[in-house]
Protein backbone atom coordinates (compact mmCIF):
# COMPACT_ATOMS: atom_id res chain seq x y z
CA UNK A 1 0.00 0.00 0.00
CA UNK A 2 1.06 3.54 -0.53
CA UNK A 3 0.19 6.31 1.93
CA UNK A 4 0.65 10.01 2.33
CA UNK A 5 1.40 10.53 6.02
CA UNK A 6 0.99 13.85 7.76
CA UNK A 7 1.50 14.24 11.50
CA UNK A 8 1.28 17.66 13.13
CA UNK A 9 2.08 18.32 16.78
CA UNK A 10 1.35 21.77 18.11
CA UNK A 11 2.00 23.30 21.50
CA UNK A 12 0.53 26.62 22.59
CA UNK A 13 2.13 28.11 25.67
CA UNK A 14 0.57 30.41 28.22
CA UNK A 15 3.76 32.48 28.39
CA UNK A 16 6.71 33.00 26.09
CA UNK A 17 9.43 30.42 25.70
CA UNK A 18 12.91 31.92 25.42
CA UNK A 19 14.92 28.81 24.63
CA UNK A 20 14.07 25.20 23.97
CA UNK A 21 15.99 22.04 23.19
CA UNK A 22 13.99 19.23 21.64
CA UNK A 23 14.18 15.71 20.33
CA UNK A 24 11.71 14.43 17.76
CA UNK A 25 11.34 10.79 16.82
CA UNK A 26 8.97 11.47 13.97
CA UNK A 27 10.83 10.27 10.88
CA UNK A 28 9.60 6.75 10.02
CA UNK A 29 12.15 3.95 9.79
CA UNK A 30 13.14 2.33 6.53
CA UNK A 31 12.41 -1.38 6.79
CA UNK A 32 12.31 -4.41 4.51
CA UNK A 33 8.52 -4.10 4.55
CA UNK A 34 8.38 -0.31 4.53
CA UNK A 35 9.89 2.22 2.13
CA UNK A 36 9.95 5.87 3.11
CA UNK A 37 10.33 8.72 0.65
CA UNK A 38 9.70 12.46 0.20
CA UNK A 39 10.04 13.04 3.91
CA UNK A 40 10.09 16.49 5.42
CA UNK A 41 9.98 17.76 8.97
CA UNK A 42 8.74 21.34 9.14
CA UNK A 43 9.39 23.13 12.43
CA UNK A 44 7.90 26.51 13.27
CA UNK A 45 9.46 28.74 14.53
CA UNK A 46 12.63 28.14 12.61
CA UNK A 47 15.17 26.23 14.74
CA UNK A 48 18.78 27.46 14.87
CA UNK A 49 20.22 24.00 14.70
CA UNK A 50 18.85 20.66 13.53
CA UNK A 51 20.84 17.43 13.79
CA UNK A 52 19.66 14.04 12.69
CA UNK A 53 21.10 10.78 13.95
CA UNK A 54 20.11 7.18 14.55
CA UNK A 55 19.52 6.30 18.16
CA UNK A 56 20.54 3.11 19.92
CA UNK A 57 17.51 1.26 18.50
CA UNK A 58 18.05 2.53 14.97
CA UNK A 59 15.24 5.11 15.15
CA UNK A 60 15.74 8.41 13.37
CA UNK A 61 16.08 11.21 15.93
CA UNK A 62 15.97 14.90 15.04
CA UNK A 63 17.49 17.20 17.63
CA UNK A 64 16.58 20.87 17.25
CA UNK A 65 16.81 24.01 19.33
CA UNK A 66 14.79 27.19 19.10
CA UNK A 67 16.20 30.44 20.42
CA UNK A 68 13.72 33.03 19.26
CA UNK A 69 10.97 34.08 21.63
CA UNK A 70 7.93 31.95 20.84
CA UNK A 71 4.54 31.15 22.26
CA UNK A 72 3.78 28.13 20.10
CA UNK A 73 5.70 25.28 18.57
CA UNK A 74 4.51 23.32 15.57
CA UNK A 75 6.23 20.28 14.13
CA UNK A 76 4.81 18.64 11.00
CA UNK A 77 5.98 15.48 9.37
CA UNK A 78 5.10 14.79 5.74
CA UNK A 79 6.13 11.52 4.20
CA UNK A 80 5.20 9.00 1.56
CA UNK A 81 5.22 5.45 2.78
CA UNK A 82 4.99 2.27 0.77
CA UNK A 83 4.19 -0.78 2.86
CA UNK A 84 4.57 -4.39 1.81
CA UNK A 85 3.03 -7.46 3.40
CA UNK A 86 4.98 -8.58 6.46
CA UNK A 87 6.36 -12.08 6.62
CA UNK A 88 4.70 -14.45 9.04
CA UNK A 89 6.39 -17.37 10.75
CA UNK A 90 6.07 -20.51 8.64
CA UNK A 91 3.64 -23.14 9.85
CA UNK A 92 6.58 -25.53 10.08
CA UNK A 93 8.03 -23.43 12.88
CA UNK A 94 6.87 -25.39 15.86
CA UNK A 95 8.62 -24.20 19.01
CA UNK A 96 7.26 -24.93 22.44
CA UNK A 97 7.31 -21.60 24.23
CA UNK A 98 9.01 -22.87 27.37
CA UNK A 99 11.89 -24.19 25.29
CA UNK A 100 12.20 -20.74 23.78
CA UNK A 101 12.52 -19.17 27.21
CA UNK A 102 15.35 -21.54 28.02
CA UNK A 103 16.95 -20.99 24.64
CA UNK A 104 17.05 -17.22 24.91
CA UNK A 105 19.51 -17.14 27.74
CA UNK A 106 21.87 -19.68 26.22
CA UNK A 107 21.78 -20.03 22.44
CA UNK A 108 22.15 -17.83 19.43
CA UNK A 109 18.81 -16.62 18.13
CA UNK A 110 19.89 -15.37 14.68
CA UNK A 111 18.55 -13.45 12.91
CA UNK A 112 17.41 -11.97 16.23
CA UNK A 113 20.36 -10.32 18.02
CA UNK A 114 21.00 -11.95 21.34
CA UNK A 115 22.04 -8.67 22.93
CA UNK A 116 18.85 -6.95 21.77
CA UNK A 117 16.67 -9.85 22.90
CA UNK A 118 18.22 -9.76 26.36
CA UNK A 119 17.78 -6.02 26.56
CA UNK A 120 14.10 -6.41 25.67
CA UNK A 121 13.59 -8.80 28.59
CA UNK A 122 14.68 -6.31 31.22
CA UNK A 123 12.49 -3.94 33.19
CA UNK A 124 12.16 -0.48 31.69
CA UNK A 125 10.75 2.86 32.85
CA UNK A 126 7.10 2.04 32.15
CA UNK A 127 7.14 -1.75 32.24
CA UNK A 128 8.20 -3.84 35.22
CA UNK A 129 7.87 -7.60 35.45
CA UNK A 130 5.45 -9.00 37.98
CA UNK A 131 4.09 -12.42 38.86
CA UNK A 132 0.51 -11.16 38.34
CA UNK A 133 1.41 -10.35 34.75
CA UNK A 134 2.92 -13.78 34.18
CA UNK A 135 -0.16 -15.41 35.72
CA UNK A 136 -2.45 -13.45 33.43
CA UNK A 137 -0.45 -14.47 30.35
CA UNK A 138 -0.55 -18.17 31.29
CA UNK A 139 -4.17 -18.33 30.16
CA UNK A 140 -2.78 -18.36 26.64
CA UNK A 141 0.72 -19.63 27.37
CA UNK A 142 -0.27 -23.12 28.39
CA UNK A 143 2.11 -26.03 28.91
CA UNK A 144 3.75 -27.22 25.69
CA UNK A 145 1.83 -24.72 23.61
CA UNK A 146 3.72 -23.57 20.53
CA UNK A 147 5.24 -20.11 20.85
CA UNK A 148 3.55 -18.60 17.79
CA UNK A 149 0.12 -20.01 18.70
CA UNK A 150 0.44 -18.82 22.25
CA UNK A 151 1.39 -15.30 21.18
CA UNK A 152 -1.58 -15.09 18.83
CA UNK A 153 -3.95 -16.42 21.46
CA UNK A 154 -2.57 -13.91 23.97
CA UNK A 155 -3.06 -11.11 21.45
CA UNK A 156 -6.76 -11.99 21.14
CA UNK A 157 -7.06 -12.51 24.89
CA UNK A 158 -6.20 -8.88 25.60
CA UNK A 159 -8.38 -7.67 22.77
CA UNK A 160 -11.39 -9.60 24.08
CA UNK A 161 -10.97 -8.93 27.80
CA UNK A 162 -10.02 -5.25 27.75
CA UNK A 163 -12.12 -2.19 26.94
CA UNK A 164 -10.73 0.60 24.83
CA UNK A 165 -11.31 3.71 26.96
CA UNK A 166 -9.48 6.96 26.15
CA UNK A 167 -10.97 8.63 29.23
CA UNK A 168 -9.44 6.17 31.60
CA UNK A 169 -5.69 6.49 31.35
CA UNK A 170 -2.87 8.96 31.60
CA UNK A 171 0.55 8.83 30.02
CA UNK A 172 2.06 6.75 32.75
CA UNK A 173 -0.72 4.43 33.87
CA UNK A 174 1.07 1.63 35.71
CA UNK A 175 0.75 -1.68 33.93
CA UNK A 176 -0.74 -3.39 36.99
CA UNK A 177 -3.51 -0.75 37.13
CA UNK A 178 -4.31 -1.49 33.52
CA UNK A 179 -4.46 -5.19 34.32
CA UNK A 180 -6.83 -4.61 37.22
CA UNK A 181 -9.14 -2.12 35.54
CA UNK A 182 -9.22 -4.00 32.22
CA UNK A 183 -9.29 -0.62 30.46
CA UNK A 184 -6.90 1.56 28.54
CA UNK A 185 -5.67 2.75 25.16
CA UNK A 186 -3.26 1.27 22.64
CA UNK A 187 -0.21 2.38 24.59
CA UNK A 188 -1.47 0.73 27.78
CA UNK A 189 -2.29 -2.52 26.01
CA UNK A 190 1.13 -2.57 24.38
CA UNK A 191 2.83 -1.93 27.73
CA UNK A 192 0.66 -4.56 29.39
CA UNK A 193 1.41 -7.20 26.79
CA UNK A 194 5.13 -6.40 26.94
CA UNK A 195 5.06 -6.69 30.72
CA UNK A 196 3.28 -10.07 30.55
CA UNK A 197 5.69 -11.48 27.98
CA UNK A 198 8.78 -10.24 29.83
CA UNK A 199 7.42 -11.69 33.06
CA UNK A 200 7.32 -15.07 31.31
CA UNK A 201 10.91 -14.58 30.16
CA UNK A 202 10.19 -13.61 26.55
CA UNK A 203 11.74 -10.55 24.89
CA UNK A 204 9.20 -7.96 23.71
CA UNK A 205 9.63 -4.48 22.30
CA UNK A 206 7.34 -1.49 21.95
CA UNK A 207 6.50 -0.26 18.45
CA UNK A 208 5.02 3.15 17.67
CA UNK A 209 3.42 4.14 14.40
CA UNK A 210 0.14 4.73 12.59
CA UNK A 211 -2.72 2.73 11.21
CA UNK A 212 -4.98 3.57 8.32
CA UNK A 213 -8.55 3.93 9.58
CA UNK A 214 -11.68 3.78 7.48
CA UNK A 215 -14.56 6.22 7.89
CA UNK A 216 -17.97 4.84 8.82
CA UNK A 217 -19.73 3.51 5.71
CA UNK A 218 -21.13 6.27 3.52
CA UNK A 219 -19.15 9.05 5.18
CA UNK A 220 -16.04 10.84 4.03
CA UNK A 221 -13.01 10.72 6.19
CA UNK A 222 -12.39 13.75 8.41
CA UNK A 223 -9.13 15.64 8.21
CA UNK A 224 -6.75 14.88 11.04
CA UNK A 225 -8.98 12.12 12.38
CA UNK A 226 -6.34 9.44 12.35
CA UNK A 227 -4.17 8.88 15.34
CA UNK A 228 -0.83 7.58 16.37
CA UNK A 229 -0.91 3.94 17.31
CA UNK A 230 1.18 1.57 19.38
CA UNK A 231 1.69 -2.15 19.33
CA UNK A 232 4.53 -4.57 20.11
CA UNK A 233 6.80 -7.24 18.72
CA UNK A 234 7.97 -10.51 20.28
CA UNK A 235 11.25 -12.25 19.48
CA UNK A 236 10.84 -15.67 17.84
CA UNK A 237 14.19 -17.47 18.14
CA UNK A 238 15.66 -18.34 14.77
CA UNK A 239 13.03 -16.39 12.87
CA UNK A 240 12.70 -12.72 13.87
CA UNK A 241 10.37 -10.29 15.62
CA UNK A 242 6.67 -11.02 15.31
CA UNK A 243 4.42 -7.95 15.60
CA UNK A 244 1.05 -8.15 17.33
CA UNK A 245 -1.59 -5.50 17.96
CA UNK A 246 -3.58 -6.35 21.10
CA UNK A 247 -5.71 -3.18 20.75
CA UNK A 248 -7.31 -4.69 17.66
CA UNK A 249 -6.48 -8.35 18.25
CA UNK A 250 -4.77 -8.56 14.87
CA UNK A 251 -1.35 -9.03 13.37
CA UNK A 252 -0.13 -5.76 11.79
CA UNK A 253 -0.30 -5.82 8.04
CA UNK A 254 0.14 -3.37 5.18
CA UNK A 255 -2.15 -0.85 6.84
CA UNK A 256 0.36 -0.34 9.65
CA UNK A 257 3.12 2.25 9.33
CA UNK A 258 6.07 1.79 11.68
CA UNK A 259 7.61 4.92 13.17
CA UNK A 260 10.05 3.75 15.84
CA UNK A 261 10.66 1.05 18.44
CA UNK A 262 12.27 0.70 21.84
CA UNK A 263 11.86 -0.82 25.32
CA UNK A 264 8.68 1.16 25.96
CA UNK A 265 7.07 4.50 25.21
CA UNK A 266 9.89 6.41 26.91
CA UNK A 267 12.31 5.32 24.17
CA UNK A 268 10.09 6.47 21.30
CA UNK A 269 8.44 9.64 22.63
CA UNK A 270 7.54 11.44 19.37
CA UNK A 271 8.44 14.89 20.65
CA UNK A 272 10.11 15.87 23.87
CA UNK A 273 11.88 18.97 24.99
CA UNK A 274 13.22 21.10 27.79
CA UNK A 275 12.45 24.78 27.68
CA UNK A 276 12.86 27.99 29.59
CA UNK A 277 9.59 29.79 30.18
CA UNK A 278 6.35 28.58 28.68
CA UNK A 279 4.11 28.24 31.73
CA UNK A 280 1.20 25.94 30.98
CA UNK A 281 0.92 24.33 27.59
CA UNK A 282 -1.89 23.12 25.38
CA UNK A 283 -1.22 20.27 23.00
CA UNK A 284 -3.00 19.46 19.77
CA UNK A 285 -2.14 16.59 17.48
CA UNK A 286 -3.48 15.88 13.99
CA UNK A 287 -2.64 12.78 12.00
CA UNK A 288 -3.69 11.96 8.45
CA UNK A 289 -2.92 8.63 6.86
CA UNK A 290 -4.22 9.03 3.33
CA UNK A 291 -4.11 6.05 0.99
CA UNK A 292 -2.65 6.98 -2.39
CA UNK A 293 -4.48 5.18 -5.16
CA UNK A 294 -3.10 5.25 -8.65
CA UNK A 295 -5.36 8.23 -9.36
CA UNK A 296 -3.93 10.10 -6.42
CA UNK A 297 -0.49 9.35 -7.69
CA UNK A 298 -1.37 10.73 -11.06
CA UNK A 299 -2.70 13.90 -9.48
CA UNK A 300 0.57 14.37 -7.73
CA UNK A 301 2.47 14.51 -10.99
Amino acid sequence: MKYQLRHTTRYDYSSDVTLSHNEARLLPRDLPWQRVSDTSLVITPQPVRVRERLDFFGNRVSYFSIQELHSSLEVTLNSQITTLPRQLPPATLDLAWQNCVAQITTDTLAPVSLAEARLMMLDSDFVRSHTDLADYARQSFREDCSLVDAIQAFNRQIFEEFTYDPEHTTIATPVLDVLNSRRGVCQDFAHLAIGCLRSLGLPARYVSGYMETLPPPGQTKLQGADATHAWLAVAIPGWGWLEIDPTNGTLPDERYITLAWGRDFADVTPLKGVMNGGGKDQLSVAVDVTPLTDEHLLELF
Partner: peptide, 13 residues
Protein backbone atom coordinates in the same frame (compact mmCIF):
# COMPACT_ATOMS: atom_id res chain seq x y z
CA UNK B 1 17.30 34.43 37.17
CA UNK B 2 16.48 31.61 34.91
CA UNK B 3 13.33 29.73 35.60
CA UNK B 4 13.91 26.04 36.15
CA UNK B 5 13.61 24.42 32.73
CA UNK B 6 10.31 22.68 32.07
CA UNK B 7 9.87 19.29 30.45
CA UNK B 8 7.69 18.98 27.41
CA UNK B 9 6.34 15.52 26.70
CA UNK B 10 3.72 14.54 24.20
CA UNK B 11 0.89 12.31 25.22
CA UNK B 12 -0.31 9.58 23.02
CA UNK B 13 -3.95 8.99 22.32
Amino acid sequence: HVEAPIQLVTMQS
